[in-house]
């Protein structure tokens, strides 16, 4: 694992602290005030905040710009970058630009297909995949060269992340894919939301047996459920999501006005399950348009205050 980056998230993980990250979706417009409001809700209760890159292929303020707003509000961003919209020329250029603006963490993704988004008539790019992007970043950072081999002046010293979905099929291949991402140069992994703890455990065990868990920081994803309807929607409509029936039943089993409370309770139970696993080094709280609950969750999970770094 690289130690040359300037990332706070990396320092927290390297020290062996249990990291906490959250998520911030940029607005569908130019209002930086929306980001500032989200920042005020997340500041001091997490180590870094992921900024999504036109997630679900819906056009939003760019991830880079929103990351800069985070920096200006005292929050370290994790810039998500998808290969759906940019070819290798634009990706490398944006990485250099982002680093020059103070962005030190990146999450490499292929991205949701544009057919899910607001403009399904768009042409996609997919010049390279997320694996290639990880590799390119590692080469830029560690060898100081771009994808053509050109020596860069002041290469981007990014802390490199990628996603993993322990719940997607084919299950047996998921660990092999994780191994490939580690070989390509990934420093940390953020996983899909964990609801199916049994399957997550099987995945971690496979990663451990393959000697992978010690080579990367695994940050497990959680999303608090707001309602039974949300649980059912995520189970049925969101690609790659695994919400077991027992979770749906639990959400259905409480009165509607108590549902959000129950969702947070499930989330806290999941966090405490994850903290028991030595190979899980942090938790990524994706409270979708529910940022005001992050502090409550982090506090109730006993994860406050966040470590102060010198």
């Amino acid at each position: 694992m690289n130690n040359g980056s300037y990332s706070r998230l990396q320092q927290v993980l390297s020290k062996g602290d249990f990291a906490v990250t959250a998520e911030c979706g940029p607005p569908r417009g130019t209002d930086a005030g929306i980001i500032q409001k989200k920042c005020s809700l997340l500041k001091d209760c997490v180590d870094a905040v992921n900024v999504t890159d036109n997630q679900t292929a819906i056009v939003r303020m760019s991830s880079i710009a929103a990351c800069v707003h985070l920096l200006q509000n005292g929050i370290e961003p994790v810039m998500q970058m998808v290969t759906r919209d940019r070819n290798r020329i634009a990706l490398q250029s944006d990485i250099m630009g982002a680093f020059s603006l103070g962005i030190t963490n990146i999450l490499c993704l292929t991205g949701d297909h544009q057919s899910f988004g607001s403009q399904p008539d768009a042409l996609n790019v997919f010049d390279i995949d997320s694996m290639n992007l990880i590799h390119a970043l590692r080469d830029m950072r560690d060898s100081g060269t771009d994808m053509s081999g050109y020596k860069l002046s002041e290469p981007p010293k990014m802390f490199i992340g990628a996603a993993a979905n322990p719940f997607a099929d084919p299950f047996e291949y998921r660990v092999l894919r994780l191994a490939k991402k580690i070989d390509a140069g990934v420093d940390f992994i953020q996983t899909q939301c964990v609801y199916n703890t049994k399957r997550f455990w099987e995945w971690i065990k496979m990663a451990r047996d393959e000697g992978l868990a010690e080579k990367v920081h695994i940050i497990a994803g959680v999303t608090p459920l707001k309602s039974a309807a949300m649980a059912k929607y995520m189970a049925g409509k969101v690609a790659g999501m695994d919400v077991p029936d027992e979770i749906i039943k639990r959400m259905e089993g409480v009165p509607k006005k108590k549902a959000a409370e129950e969702g947070i309770k499930i989330c806290l139970e999941t966090i405490s399950f994850l903290r028991e696993i030595s190979d899980v080094h942090g938790v990524h709280i994706m409270a979708i348009e529910w940022e005001e609950k992050v502090q409550e969750i982090v506090e109730a999970a006993g994860l406050l205050p966040r470590p102060q770094l010198t």
Binding site: D112, D129, N165, R177
Partner: peptide, 18 residues
């Protein structure tokens, strides 16, 4: 997604997320 190092996280029960 033209993935050369696939599959992506959207592969479920043998079908494509798209």
């Amino acid at each position: 997604k033209k993935l050369l190092n696939g599959p992506c996280g959207g592969s479920q029960n043998g079908t494509c997320e798209v």
